[in-house]
């Protein structure tokens, strides 16, 4: 089986739009609708958030959406059930993003197996340490053809970026600045220097910039420095506007792309 993430980056090296949403938000069963609408509106890659009670790396918007999703009854099992037939409907690359503890309780092996069965292409677990991944789980992820995506930040030293690059095969998630998700300061000059530094490293994996991307301008600016950019909190916020999901998704994505 080819990996859809790899395929995507072979087809498209610039201006790639990736969108994050929290599964189970606004309503428990919105997962499929959101994925299909995002695809219809021209999004290239989707990160499906698995809600956690204590999302350390997230700001208020994603925290709040996670709280609602959990209250709605979202679990990893439920999410896999919802995604059971997704590959009959779309071939857009799908990445699951969440925290390690719920995955650990589900069982990492069982998690990888189910993810592969429903057609997931990549996994992001920000609090799974690189060394533990390499020593304990890399083989398992690779066996199931799952790209393990790692984050880097402006503070990540060059040799560690190279180490991360050598252990992954999807893309590298470049956190734009030292922050939790949802800060909308724009991309500071400091970040530009960091983007250029990473671009100059000639890594084997493409880079996608995330955190703080929230409108057309920040998206375009991020795309100047990497293969694409990820929008999370701003999209989750947009889902809360009045009107139908379909409308909100279309309005938001078109505001970024056009």
């Amino acid at each position: 089986m080819r990996n859809r993430i790899k395929h995507l980056f072979e087809q498209k090296q610039k201006g790639l739009l990736s969108v994050y949403f929290t599964a189970g938000f606004p309503s428990l069963n919105d997962t499929e609708t959101i994925i299909l609408e995002l695809e219809k509106n021209g999004v290239d890659l989707i990160e499906v958030g698995m809600p956690f009670s204590d999302p350390l790396a997230d700001g208020p918007t994603i925290q709040a959406s996670s709280t609602v999703a959990l209250r709605n009854g979202m679990t990893i099992s439920t999410l896999f059930d919802q995604l059971k037939d997704i590959r009959k409907k779309t071939q857009i690359p799908l990445v699951l993003m969440g925290y390690l503890n719920p995955v650990m309780q589900y069982g990492v092996e069982r998690f990888c197996q189910r993810a592969a069965e429903v057609g997931i292409d990549g996994i992001i677990l920000p609090d799974l340490p690189l060394r533990e991944y390499v020593e304990e789980y890399k083989e398992l992820f690779e066996k199931h053809n799952l790209s393990k995506v790692f984050l880097i930040t402006p503070q990540t030293p060059e040799e560690r970026i190279r180490e991360i690059d050598s252990h992954t095969n999807g893309f590298i998630y470049m956190v734009s600045s030292a922050s939790t998700t949802g800060k909308t300061l724009g991309l500071a000059e400091q970040s530009q220097a960091y983007f250029q530094r990473v671009a100059g490293m000639q890594l084997q994996n493409p880079g996608v910039i995330g955190f703080g991307i929230h409108d057309k301008e920040t998206f375009a600016s991020a795309c100047n420095h990497a293969s694409g950019a990820i929008i999370g909190s701003a999209f989750v916020k947009a889902l809360q506007e009045e009107g139908s999901l379909q409308q909100n998704i279309a309005t938001f994505i078109q505001s970024i792309k056009n």
């Binding site: 790396a57 920000p126 609090d127 799974l128 340490p129 880097i152 930040t153 990540t156 956190v175 030292a178």
Partner: peptide, 9 residues
Amino acid sequence: AYVPEMLYP
């Protein structure tokens, strides 16, 4: 130390 990369340094 199960921390996201942002805390690693």
